[in-house]
């Protein structure tokens, strides 16, 4: 019984903290779904977990599906950055594929817009 009380109280304590283990997009710059007045020079993605550089990718395309990124993403810890070509006003799609260091893959996409809001 004493053991049971100990377990329950430890789990209650545990509920005070929740952490991440798979790599999900935490935030991005430009912000997900945002409209930015001037063209950004890069897209920066921050994930909830550290990434494996060898197997994590990001691609930025314009409304016609043409790639507008510089080709190779830089991965450091839990962030992934990719340089952009000069972007004319319009809508752009960011598609990412992340491999977290615990070997799980996640992927997602979002768009942002360059131009007047």
């Amino acid at each position: 019984m004493r053991m049971l009380i100990a377990v329950v109280s430890l789990f209650l304590l545990a509920s005070a903290s929740a952490a991440e283990a798979h790599a999900f997009l935490d935030h991005a710059s430009p912000l997900v779904g945002s409209t930015v007045p001037t063209a950004p020079h890069q897209v920066s993605l921050t994930f909830t977990q550290n990434l494996e550089a060898a197997f994590s990718t990001v691609e930025v395309t314009d409304a016609n599906g043409v790639r507008v990124d510089q080709g190779k993403a830089q991965v450091s810890g839990n962030t992934m950055q990719i340089g952009l070509k000069a972007l004319p006003p319009g809508s752009y799609k960011v598609q990412w594929h992340a491999l977290s260091v615990d070997t799980h893959t996640t992927q997602g996409a979002f768009s942002f817009r360059v131009g007047a809001p």
């Binding site: 997900v32 779904g33 996640t106």
Partner: peptide
């Protein structure tokens, strides 16, 4: 979180509004 990002079906359009 997994429901949000881990399982975007192939060929689907997806946007996360934050």
């Amino acid at each position: 979180h997994h429901a949000a990002y881990g399982a975007v079906p192939k060929g689907a359009a997806f946007v996360h509004i934050h």
